[in-house]
Structures are given as C-alpha cells and as structure tokens.
Design a binder for these strands. Structure first.
Lengths: 184, 184
DNA sequence: CCATGACGACCGATCGGTCGGTAGCATTAT
DNA sequence: ATAATGCTACCGACCGATCGGTCGTCATGG
C-alpha cells in the first residue's frame, strides 16, 4: 500500500477517533511513521484529507445502493438498502463516522459537494419508499417523509453499536422486519 | 442572567456549532463580551464547561422522564418518553448536541459520570419497554434490545431535523405511531 | 476596607504549514 | 558501460499564529 493511501486510512481513523480539530498533522505523521514535513509531499493541506474521506463515504453509500438487483421488489429493495447501508458502516466504520460527524468542518466547496451527494442519497431512498407504497409493499397511507427519517435514524445510529462481531446482514434484516411489522 | 450562566450557554452554543476542539477560549470570551483572562475568573478550565454541559444534558433527559405520570399505561408511557426526549432536543438543542456528539472529549472522571448517566437513562427506557410487553401493550415476542435501539435511533437522530417550527409533541406522537403500527 | 471580577500583558506549547536540502532511483546522454 | 540529469519522497529546522492558561493590577460596590 503506498504512502498516500496510508495517510488517508490513518487520517480517517484519527478523525473518527479524536475528531478533525482534535487531530494534528503531527499525530497523523506519527501514525504513518513519517515526519510532519513529509506529509506535505502528499497532501496540500489538512482539509484535503477531510474532503477526500467525506466524499469517499458518499461514494461508498452510493455504490452500495447500486449493487441492489434492479429486479428486486420495491419492498425487498428497501431491506437490501438497509443491509447495504449497514455494511458500509461495518466495513468502513472510520469513513462512515467522518461522513456523519466531521463533515461540518469541510470548507465551502467540499461542503457543497458533500451536501449534494447526501441529498442524492436520501432522494434515492425516498424514491424507493414511494415505489414500495405504489406497489403495495408498504401501507398506502404511509407518511413517506417520516418513514425515510426513521430509516436513516436506524441506519445512521448503527455507528454507535456496530462491532465486527455482529452479522450485519442478519441484523439489518431484523431491524427492517421490526420496522415493517411494528412494535405492537 | 449572571456572567457564569452566560458562559455556559455560549459555550454550549459554540461547542455544538464548531465542536469542542474547534472552539477556543478566545471565541467564548468574544461571544460573551469578555476578555480571555476574565473567563478564568469563572471557570477552572475549558473542560469544566464541557463536563457541565454534558451533565446538564443527562439531567435534562432524566427530568423529562420523571415528568411522565406514574399512572400512565406502559405503552402510553413510551409515547410520552419519546415526547419528553424530543422536547429536550427542541428546547435545549445545543446541550443535546454536545451530549450526543462532544461527550467523547470529556476527561476520564467526567466521561465515567456521563456514561453512567446515559446507561441509567437507557436502562429506564428499556424497563419501560419490558413493562409494555408484559402488560400486552407491545408484541409478546418483541425483541426488546432492537426495539430500544430503534427508539433511541429515532430520538437521537432528531438532532439533525429539529427546528422550532415543528410541533414537537405532535411529531413525537406521529413517530411513535409509525413505530408501533409498522410500515406495512 | 476588602472581596470580586475584569483586564492587559505575557507564558510555554502546539498549531498548520514552509523552507532548503538530500538520498535514492529511473531515465537519458555520452 | 558509465556519467550526468531529473524527479520523487523524505527530512530537520523553522515560521507566524494561536492554543489553553497565568500573572499582577486595578476599579467597583457592599
């Protein structure tokens, strides 16, 4: 693995653990076994790393949605979407953490890109809910806005309880079943 | 309002907005119209403010639960608990944000206290779920652990969409109804 | 008269970032 | 085949700015 890639990975780890402002370039250099000055042979500044990680998060979520079979039923596609989201959280926990918590420290340009990507992602899931209602897989009188919020609530809160011991796909299925069937 | 209280309020606002490490004592002094040195007439250090705000969050959540009538049915008590939580988010958005996002920068002692308070809070809600199942207000085969996680997912994700235009109690009721009835 | 709170000046440490220089290696010219 | 060249990654030393925090002083009001 080349040095540039190691910098990204270690930066994601440190940003997720100590926060963007709580991580210094000296910390990052130490974590990669470099001197501070050497870090700047690979990056133009600290914020470049944050932007890169945040956009990598968006890409991961979008790609996870892309992998859902096009011929899946609308209801089942949502179950797979929750699986896809939780898989990203599990396999790229640091990136997902930065994506959720540290994006607000992005500069103007990168922040705009981030928000656009996130809005697209939410839009795709919203469309899936609308399809599921239209196809009769979900209640006809469903409040789609709140349903989408509930979906992302569960999906994003997973950051706080996710561990590698968990069977992610099973867990996602169980949560989806709970949401679909209701508590009563 | 005395100076010490203004410091707490402005600190919560700044910590919520820019993060703990992204907020300097100079920022806080400017926000309260003081000189940096004067801030230290009221606090012993930056971390004291973070600890105070984090513990204030815990207190707010616990008090909100306390206000639920003891004679409410177990199922209805959970609806009221979601109301109570969302009311804290709405009325003390800054404190709730720090409680959720910035607590990890607490020192050892304060962190332990924070985690204990949060565990107690989760325990109280878990007990309410168990009662609701026992009393037949929720499904007998309910997976309580996942149900509690779903509850806190929705409750805590509210930070991201809460605005003062929203009728909090109605919103909480609508979300609770959605969780109880399910998506299908 | 004295306790409190505000203040300007200052502290050592660390921040993000820059500088000139060099070791190592591949490409090219002789 | 060898010497000169160019390039990349790395480094120690350093930059001005800012960090959290301290000091001695002074004004004010009970």
């Amino acid at each position: 693995m080349d040095t540039r890639e190691r910098l990204s990975i270690e930066a994601a780890r440190l940003f997720a653990q100590r926060g963007y402002h709580g991580t210094s370039i000296a910390d990052l250099a130490a974590a990669t076994g470099l001197q501070k000055a050497s870090v700047y042979s690979h990056i133009s500044g600290k914020e470049e790393l944050l932007a890169e990680i945040a956009l990598a998060g968006a890409e991961a979520y979008h790609e996870a949605l892309d992998a859902i079979p096009k011929d899946a039923g609308a209801g089942d596609a949502l179950r797979l979407a929750l699986q896809a989201h939780l898989r990203v959280v599990d396999r790229q926990l640091d990136v997902a953490t930065v994506w959720l918590q540290e994006w607000r420290y992005l500069g103007e340009a990168a922040r705009r890109q981030f928000l656009a990507d996130r809005r697209d992602y939410e839009r795709r899931v919203t469309t899936m809910f609308e399809r599921a209602v239209a196809e009769g897989d979900l209640r006809a009188d469903l409040d789609v806005r709140r349903a989408v919020l509930a979906f992302f609530s569960v999906a994003n809160w997973a950051l706080t309880w996710m561990t590698h011991e968990i069977d992610v796909d099973r867990e996602a299925d169980a949560f989806w079943a709970l949401l679909v069937a209701g508590l009563s």
